[in-house]
Design a protein around this nucleic acid. Structure first.
Lengths: 198, 198, 198, 198
DNA sequence: AATGCTCCAGCTGAGC
DNA sequence: GCTCAGCTGGAGCATT
């Protein structure tokens, strides 16, 4: 029963070697994790240095990663926040977004007594081509120097979003540099570039 | 057990009594804190039970508490998120919000080569009375059964938001109960299939 | 701004008033919570100013609050940490604590081949009076200027802990001021007193 | 969906491509991070499955990773916790650890009026060989079936810790399996037959 | 004094 | 149904 008392007697896995093995593996993984986090931080710093808002980028990343259920849940919260804000008079000049509007319109007319609605929305379905056309029109509008306010589509028209996308895409592809409107406001640093972006 | 304070040689504040004093005060405060958190949780549960989205409510609370700087910072992140989303083609049918639009329009025409913009926005300042009128109109629209989509004001018009507020306020004041569109979707207790709208 | 509740049609609880009610209650509780946290922070700062280690105090508070199960779980983790440390040769001069030792001794002699153990521990039960005597002896030892190393009881003897308690209690009750050995080492501030205590 | 990068007008790094580039890199790193965390979790589950306490292992890993300053800070907190516990009469049978004792002894005799101290500690420096001998003795003690309580060295003697290390190392190297005293207590899954229900 | 960082408690979703 | 790991948000801390 007495074991040879030199340190680890067998290649076999004693409890001590098991333990050391586990610890070593964890340490190895932790080290890799740390390197990864450093890399991640580098990318964030680079984004920050270029003038992007890291918070906004991370939000985008998160949105792109979420599945349908998560997306629905998040959007529901956002919509309800808008609705509650509206009911409390906190909109402060920002009208309801399209999604919140749609949510409120879902039961279209809870009491359909009245029918004199102006109804300026494009309720007829818009074809995919029209949407692509709108996106292209947005691009061209930006190219020709038109502002984002020139979006000709009324609220509720799906082409409105597409036109926005086209305009913003063109704005982002415009020059070498990041548009001023895309930049986060520097918190304290002087507005010159902290470090040169390649 | 030991009675640590039974043999203190001096009525004066020795280190031990100091220590015990501090610990006791902390424990007292921790106890109060726990009770408060319980109360808070009760309110949240009550809100949840009534069908409200607790997350949305907490977001509202947070917004109401923030000062100007915090508010500006938060809004900037939200606007930039929208802008980035637009540039990546992720708007998914939701046009830019008013704030993001304004941010992009700020430097009105970065390259003012062209001037044939339709400019459908109401750029002339709208009087406060008109805004109140719009809010009232929203209320009345709801009262007469009109849907939220009936908002007659075009995107960019400040009265659009006011009309929304009026409509939502009326919708919330409508009956005894919380409107269906205000309710969060139950996570698991949903009797029927939650999704299913095409 | 908007006065959302100025036009509520019914005194009855509409959804909007419900919402506002909930929000107000949450805000009230949050405010109280903030005040409480401020108070708590004040106590911590006071403790820190007096030279106590706030982290150690908080750990004490946590221990005092835990129930039997939590206590057992925590102690088990601590004991196992010591055991693992010992097996890895990381004890660094600190022998196993009594609890870990007891845990390892529980199955008293897994292989009872040998019986020539020195067994220097006081395995006969020690009476409660002896323990109180030991505590008193510790107090007196401190009073007479003896150091903590003078504890005459051997490891494993329950009176050893009692003597320590007595000595430490006396040390803490000794003067007006907190003993040097009780003080946390200042992190960066110059060693002069940051602000007067008392 | 939209193919935002299909229409980039320039191969050059426009703002949009910059943005997409950054996002893609972040997503890549996040994916790797997730895989790493999964691997880490696997190791933890394996440790748990073998009966180790994952919490204790993680504590060991943390200790092994800390530098001198962190180590000193952590130990100070632990020592002060013991001191405070002692002063409050909370030692509950566990005497002060060696480190706390040393801290209290540092100013050896604050009032050296008395000199009749038993002083049973080995205050003369112990040679490194003696320590190794003690470790070896611990190993042999375990091999011969002696319990951990057989440690012949008195508290304060550095060989006491070494003997413990030797004993624990031998205990861990003893058999194929993890000693019972090393195992965490299962929280709910009683390993034996769940008899006696109903 | 303000800000970014780090740590920890509180909360959420999963899993037995 | 209850616990448990993961995560988000907040609080404290160090820094500039």
């Amino acid at each position: 029963m007495a074991k040879p008392n030199s340190t680890l007697p067998k290649g076999n896995a004693s409890a001590t070697t098991e333990l050391l093995n586990l610890i070593t593996r964890i340490e190895r993984l932790e080290k890799e994790k740390k390197e990864l986090l450093d890399d991640l931080n580098d990318v964030k710093l680079e984004a920050k240095g270029k003038g992007f808002s890291v918070k906004a980028i991370l939000r985008i990343v998160k949105e792109r990663a979420e599945d349908a259920g998560q997306r629905a849940a998040r959007q529901e919260v956002e919509e309800l926040t808008e609705v509650y804000r509206a009911a409390l008079g906190m909109l402060d000049g920002t009208p309801l977004g399209e999604a919140a509007r749609k949510r409120l319109a879902e039961p279209p007319h809870p009491a359909g007594d009245d029918d004199d609605e102006p109804l300026p929305v494009a309720s007829e379905p818009v074809s995919a081509e029209s949407i692509d056309d709108a996106r292209q029109a947005g691009r061209e509008a930006h190219a020709s120097g038109a502002g984002i306010l020139s979006n000709p589509y009324v609220a509720g028209d799906p082409r409105r979003a597409a036109w926005d996308e086209g305009w913003c895409l063109a704005a982002g592809s415009d020059g070498m540099d990041i548009p001023k409107a895309w930049r986060r406001t520097e918190k304290k640093k002087s507005p010159d570039a902290p470090e040169g972006e390649g």
